[in-house]
């Protein structure tokens, strides 16, 4: 197996596995677990460059050059994140991160104001809003949201004192995720299925703004599946 001793073989393998990895995350849409949609064109450019590098490296396979220990070490370093990915199979950032980063209960930037101008879906008497929109409205136009019926989706974070609905806002990638949260006032019904931390739920209820703090008086909390876009942008 002379080829296994060739330096170019290991280099080609690096280009091949990363080419396949980027191809698979862009086909399945799984890149959204890690980065924003904005990066999609860059991922495609990356795939094309990787393919060209792979083809160029394959051409070199004819000229044998013996591999060194460092080439194999480099190959292992490149392999490490992908093996980790296959073993861990992550789905979305858990609320553990929210605690580490501090949950933001007040949030307003220009793009929040812009998103408020978009058409808002209505389900029965409830307005479908995101946590980002609720926090933005509560800060900029509290009169438009105080006392209104809404539906919000997010992850549960609760402890002895608080029950919160949390969702991560990402700008570029999961490393910059900022947890946004709203306090939920809710009396748990013993008969119902227990709601745990990190469960995805839809909360139906009324908004209440007190001393500039927004909360939702929940009428109903329904467990849901992980949405296709777990983050807010």
């Amino acid at each position: 197996m002379k080829v296994l001793k060739s330096k170019h073989f290991y280099k080609s393998m690096i280009f091949l596995i990363y080419f396949l990895f980027f191809l698979s995350i862009s086909f399945t849409g799984n890149f959204k677990i890690f980065v924003k949609k904005f990066y999609f064109p860059y991922i495609i450019i990356g795939i094309l460059i990787l393919l060209s590098l792979l083809l160029a490296e394959i051409k070199k396979l004819k000229r044998f050059k013996e591999t060194s220990f460092f080439d194999i070490l480099t190959f292992c370093i490149f392999l490490f994140p992908l093996i980790l990915l296959i073993i861990v199979k992550p789905t979305t950032l858990p609320t553990y991160t929210a605690l580490k980063r501090g949950i933001q209960t007040e949030f307003l930037t220009q793009d929040v104001l812009k998103s408020l101008q978009e058409k808002i879906e209505i389900e029965g008497k409830y307005k479908k809003l995101t946590i980002k929109q609720v926090l933005g409205l509560a800060k900029s136009k509290p009169e438009q949201i105080d006392g209104k019926d809404i539906i919000v989706e997010g992850m549960v974070y609760k402890n002895e004192r608080k029950f919160m609905l949390v969702r991560f806002l990402i700008t570029c990638c999961a490393a910059d995720a900022t947890p946004l949260g709203i306090e939920i006032e809710y009396k748990e019904n013993g008969e119902k299925e227990e709601i745990r931390n990190d469960d995805w739920v839809k909360v139906r209820g009324k908004v209440k703004i007190e001393n500039d703090k927004v909360k939702i008086i929940a009428e109903e909390i329904i467990k849901t599946e992980l949405p296709s876009n777990p983050y807010l942008y």
Partner: peptide, 24 residues
């Protein structure tokens, strides 16, 4: 464990974001 999940997501996020730019 959530810590391992977070670690994997952040590592992969930095790489998926960084690699296309290193390639360019």
């Amino acid at each position: 464990n959530p810590k391992i999940q977070v670690f994997t997501i952040i590592l992969l996020a930095i790489l998926i974001e960084g690699f296309p730019f290193i390639l360019i």
